[in-house]
Amino acid sequence: MISLDQHREALNQSGVEMLSLCRKQLENARDAFFTHDSDLAEEVIRTENRVNALDLKIDRDCERFIALHNPVASDLRFVLALRKINFDLERVGDHAYGISKYIIEVDTPIEDRLLEIMRVEEMFESALSMLDDITDAYIEADAKLARKVFKKDKVLNKINMKSFKIISTEVRINPESIDQFLLLFSVIKKLERIGDLVTNIAEEIIFFREAEVVKHRKKKTFKRGKEE
């Protein structure tokens, strides 16, 4: 017989594995993007199968956990949160996959000048840093750490908001580079979306730890614990 604690720990470990796998996918997609390394991009594409398989495994294990243990209170919040976290991470993996597909489809690397004015590297770094924070928050079950990502997501949103104007100006000056602009625009959108997904994950960690639903709400910083 597998005890509730053992089952929960196994699920928790699968969550850590999914976090680490999706972070690695995004990191490889970034490296492939900046070095135009199609081999590395291929690797991301191949590894997408592992992400999908782990996604299915976690879903199935969560279902079993609920069916076998009838969890309540923090056990229930944990498994509900993990299901959503898993869903969001799988989407992060999809975006890393999407970015890698562009690298293979586009022959020429993107001009450094464009990358700089569009602040793409900063976006990648912010997204990866958010994934690092959220991994720590998940492992430590620390809602305060989870809240750190809300601020970082604003950087991504800001760059994304400005990108449209920059692109519309640049494309008039260099219409021959339109393909590159469109690709960049897509990558920026994906990175902005990754920021949103990591924010969702932070909300789930807060829900799990504090039984507080913070989604669709202005983010607050407060702490509460149980009475002994």
């Binding site: 969890p71 309540v72 209170a73 923090s74 056990d75 039984a211 149980k226 009475e227 002994e228």
Partner: peptide, 14 residues
Amino acid sequence: FTNPEKQQTENYIT
């Protein structure tokens, strides 16, 4: 059953 105040309650119901 979703968010008990006391740790003892949480331990019992889980």
